[in-house]
């Protein structure tokens, strides 16, 4: 099983290659969308790279549960409701959603995922 440092280095390599950012921009606190400029297609690129690098399978919706964010039971007026937040936490134990909870607007969700969240996710899979 790889160490936390090894996981971070491989995640960093995947992000540098997928997003064309510099090594030093990829810090644990950096957000994928806000700080590193990831767009929707980049997530597919990142998923493919992580799968290859760690020899894991990342099922659709596991890293980024779009189904919750488009479910009218969980989203009201563009914001994730309390039930939705419970469901998100259940599905994403690897992510720190405390900042998102302050303003759970769907459009803010993508911007809240950090490099550390991604490392936590990978660690749960290897």
């Amino acid at each position: 099983m790889p160490s936390k440092e090894e996981v971070f280095e491989k995640v960093r390599e995947a992000l540098v290659d997928a997003l064309g950012v510099d090594d030093d921009e990829v810090t644990p606190e950096a957000t994928l969308v806000g700080d590193l400029g990831a767009e929707s297609i980049d997530f597919l690129d990142i998923v493919f790279r992580l799968e290859k690098s760690f020899d894991i399978k990342i099922p659709r919706g596991e890293l980024f549960p779009e189904d919750i964010l488009t479910n009218s039971d969980y989203v009201v007026d563009g914001k994730v409701n309390a039930e939705g937040l419970v469901e998100l936490k259940k599905r994403m134990p690897f992510a720190d959603l405390s900042k998102f909870e302050e303003n759970p607007a769907v459009q803010e969700f993508a911007t809240s995922l950090t490099v550390q969240d991604m490392c936590n996710y990978v660690e749960s899979k290897v």
Binding site: I41, L44, F48, E51, K52
Partner: peptide, 10 residues
């Protein structure tokens, strides 16, 4: 073809 899934391929 390096990888293919529901939403795309590489």
């Amino acid at each position: 073809l390096e990888a293919i899934e529901e939403s795309g391929a590489r």
